[in-house]
Amino acid sequence: MDSVFLYSGLYLAFLMIFPLYRALRGPTVVDRMLGVNAIGSKTVVLLILIGLIFNRVDMFVDIALAYAMLNFIAVLAASRYFHKRKGLYDELQ
């Protein structure tokens, strides 16, 4: 069962490349935020997988909860910041 979790974690880490591409190359700022949010939702699952591999789920669950909250607050703060059309039009031209 451990190897299943190990390869699932590796596969999840591989999947993070696609949103990372969107975060780096995205045509607008909101695309980048979208990519970062997608990476965060995969990281939560990856953290619990790591906890199961190392047999310390009780500790890693707390880290995953804190990470989920941090990800949510980061997305909210970034989207509030760009409410004022700051820098959004520069990239479209």
Binding site: V30, M33, R80
Partner: peptide, 20 residues
């Protein structure tokens, strides 16, 4: 937590896009 926050985060991003 994911079920509560994921639609909210989506809505925040789409709101920023609409205002831009």
């Amino acid at each position: 937590f994911v079920f509560l926050t994921s639609p909210t985060a989506t809505h925040a991003i789409v709101d920023a896009g609409v205002r831009a």
